[in-house]
Simulated scan of single mutants.
Amino acid sequence: MRRGPICLLALAALSGCSFEMPSFLGREGSQTGTYTLGDDAPEGAYDPVAVPVSSAVAERALHGVILRAESITPTQGYYAAVLDVGEAGPEPDASGTLTVRFTALSPTTPQATGAPQTRRLTAALFVQNVTLRDVRAFRVVGSPNSVTVPLPR
């Protein structure tokens, strides 16, 4: 019998959660969910750049292959490393080699060089068995070099 009024009180309290946050509490409460980058970033600062490939390995996984690549970047501060198959999609060339680009976002300000351990980036890509029908190897393309890895059995 006491559960009814308690449930009504809880529902009334929860219904107030859908209102916008008043601005006097330190938030604007527009609820758009969008954020803007600061005006101090230079033009093209958030475009991915190719990084050098130091090693790459392909490992069998359930229903596909995991391609993992590693890079030692020129300076510290590189982030958001990605293995990208490009706009053409995961289509191998005539020899059965699937080309993947290794990119990352570069720092917007000059950074220290530091030890190689502090400049290491790793990225991975899962390739499904359906895509692997015509693939015999992977070519990971970086800035000055590329590494070719055979498809694991």
Rank of each mutant, 00 (worst) to 15 (best):
Gly4Ala: 13
Pro5Leu: 08
Cys7Arg: 11
Leu9Ser: 12
Leu9Met: 10
Ala10Gln: 10
Ala13Asp: 15
Leu14Asp: 12
Leu14Met: 15
Ser15His: 11
Gly16Gln: 13
Phe19Tyr: 14
Met21Phe: 09
Met21Asn: 09
Ser23Gln: 08
Leu25Tyr: 07
Arg27Trp: 13
Thr34Lys: 07
Tyr35Leu: 07
Thr36Lys: 08
Gly38Val: 06
Ala45His: 13
Val49Pro: 00
Val51Leu: 01
Pro52Asn: 04
Ser54Ile: 07
Arg60Asn: 13
Leu62Lys: 08
His63Pro: 04
Arg68Met: 08
Glu70Asn: 14
Thr73Gln: 02
Thr73Pro: 03
Gly77Gln: 03
Ala81Trp: 01
Ala81His: 04
Leu83Gly: 02
Gly86His: 00
Pro92Gly: 03
Ala94Tyr: 08
Ser95Thr: 12
Gly96Glu: 03
Arg101Tyr: 00
Arg101Asn: 01
Phe102Ile: 02
Phe102Pro: 00
Ala104Asp: 09
Ser106Gly: 10
Gln111Lys: 15
Gln111Tyr: 13
Gln111Ala: 12
Thr113Trp: 04
Gly114His: 05
Pro116Ala: 09
Pro116Asn: 09
Thr118Trp: 06
Arg119Ile: 12
Ala124Gln: 13
Gln128Trp: 09
Val130Leu: 11
Val130Asp: 14
Arg133His: 12
Val135Gly: 05
Ala137Trp: 07
Ala137Val: 07
Val141Glu: 01
Gly142Arg: 12
Asn145Pro: 06
Ser146Trp: 06
Val147Gly: 05
Val149Gln: 05
Arg153Pro: 04
